[in-house]
Amino acid sequence: MSGFVASLITLGFLAQVLRIAIPYVLAALGGTLSERAGVIDLALEAKLLMGAFAAAVLGYETGSIAIGIAGAAAAGVAVAAIQAFWSVRLGADQVVTGIALNLGAFGFTRYLLGVRYGQGANSPRFDGVGTGVLTNPISWIAAALVALVVVGLGQTRLGLRVRAVGERPDAVAAAGVSVARVRWLAVLIGGALAGVGGAQLSLPVDGFVAEASGGRGYVALAAVIMSGWRPGRAALWCLAFGLADAVQYRMQTHGVGLPAELTRLLPYVLALVLLAAWPRRVAPPRALGQPD
């Protein structure tokens, strides 16, 4: 037990927290953008998973980490494009669209693995980015993106329009701005961010494992909601979830006497408890979930 506690007060543990938090952070940033524009982002899970898959496969096939990361972003954008086509263009139910994409991504990645590598569970291993934090380009990309989204949403022309379109799309239309265009942009950019977050699920472990997203997209969405749809705070909540996840890994390796099946639930239970208990001072974007 004391070994377990001591292991939490190390630089290695801090690095582990950051490494684990990155997919949450990037997915939450992407989710914040979509949702501020009024599009419920339940498809974060699919974006993470497709990003992880694309990064591993393209990284393995080309031997280039950069192409892997770019491919992850593109995969996230592709999922986002389908989502936007259904929910922005056709006005379909955004929750159903998101769930369909998540389920589809699970099957689709397994199918492609099977077609290309003859088995549906793993992509071939290759030299990824390693488990270090400072040597991992995704860490730096993530840090830059947090700042970029905070500034972009709060202080740019597009950011103002995104914030307006999630509240009063009719007012945005009356100001002569295309509501659909703003929503498309927000969802696509959000997809790229979540896709890059997915790369962090495969590149540090040198390959893609089926269902690598493991519900992180939903936890990231919980962070978006608890942050009051504010990107900086959402990133901080994701660090908290990363911390919970890292603690449960240490509990497993140090054998604190609880079954792994229970400790693994820690971040999810934390998300549930916080969602219920955290005071909701900030109302969601008023037009969230409503097609124009």
Binding site: R157, R161, R163, A164, E167, V172, A175, R286
Partner: peptide
């Protein structure tokens, strides 16, 4: 009315015609 309640009056007035300075919206 066509005001976005969560934005300031200045932001509402600028919507669609935002003044930009140095790449950022000039509030």
């Amino acid at each position: 009315g066509m005001l976005v309640p969560t934005l300031t009056l200045a932001d509402n007035a600028a919507l669609g015609h935002e003044p930009v300075r140095g790449g950022r919206y000039d509030r």
